[in-house]
């Protein structure tokens, strides 16, 4: 029987070793994903264009309606909440600034990322996970096809392209939502609202939002792929890993958001 101290250090050690292995595995996937996406095409191993387009349709185009509805509502909500405070100081026109800036800098990218994490991140984990449990990943390896190149690269390219694209779309619809509410319920003249928005928004507001969205796309793909490739057992584990991928990617999206927001606060 080991003593209590020994058992304590033993369990800490085992956890650290397991964690170290996870970190190693995650960095291997990140490394492989970037290698097969950016380096190997130069060396004459092209990416799968048709698969990439199909991923773009699945992850991007099919997400348009839900992104539109959610950002419209958030735009309206934001305008209402802003008006609630601003009317006390008689500064209702600043609703336009608040809606415009917060949507483009923050809410557009993060809402889109959360929607995509829920739709596509989970789908990536489930797809790769069930392929892993059906030995399809092993089959790819024995055919000499790198599974990361075959499965992850198209998804990575699709999200790196579609997340900023969806964000631009969400920005526009969100601002339109604020505009809609302000011009009807609050009674701001449409032209004034438009002018105010244009004056308030800077190119850098939109650009920092898009840089964030691009990074979120990478985070969501890598987390989904990592959880998928970690599947060892059957259907139950696929389910567990899918859930874990959504939770982890939303968490990491927010961590990265904090990082980028801090960075942009000091350096733009």
């Amino acid at each position: 029987m080991p003593s209590k101290t020994e058992a304590f250090f033993g369990s800490v050690g085992r956890r650290v070793i397991l964690f170290g292995r996870d970190v190693h595995y995650a960095s291997k996937i990140i490394n492989d994903a970037f290698y097969w996406t950016f380096v190997s095409p130069v060396k004459g191993k092209p990416v799968r264009v048709r698969a990439t387009i199909s991923e773009i349709v699945k992850a991007g185009y099919n997400a348009v309606p839900i992104v539109a509805v959610i950002s419209l509502f958030v735009g309206i909500i934001l305008a209402l909440q802003a008006a609630y405070q601003l009317k006390r100081v008689g500064a209702l026109i600043y609703v336009a600034n608040l809606v415009g800036v917060s949507i483009t800098r923050e809410l557009g990218p993060i809402l889109t990322a959360i929607i995509v994490a829920g739709r596509s991140g989970s789908a990536f984990a489930a797809e790769i996970g069930s392929m892993k449990s059906a030995e399809e990943v092993d089959a790819l390896v024995t055919m000499g096809i790198n599974p990361v190149r075959f499965l992850v690269t198209p998804k990575l390219l699709a999200l790196m392209f579609m997340l900023p694209a969806l964000t631009v779309f969400a920005d526009m619809i969100g601002i339109f939502g604020g505009f809609l509410l302000s011009t009807t319920v609050i009674g701001i003249h449409p032209y004034n609202y438009f002018q105010q928005s244009v004056n308030a928004l800077l190119v850098k507001d939109v650009m920092t939002g898009l840089v964030k969205a691009w990074a979120f796309g990478i985070v969501i793909t890598i987390v989904g792929a990592y959880q998928g490739f970690k599947v060892e057992g059957g259907a139950e584990e696929v389910g567990r890993r899918t859930t874990a991928s959504v939770v982890a990617s939303i968490f990491l999206v927010i961590v990265f958001d904090l990082f980028f927001t801090t960075l942009f606060y000091y350096f733009t």
């Binding site: 392929m131 059906a134 030995e135 399809e136």
Partner: peptide
């Protein structure tokens, strides 16, 4: 492979 492992 046992389950044929065709890509679905």
């Amino acid at each position: 492979f046992q389950g044929a492992a065709l890509l679905n």
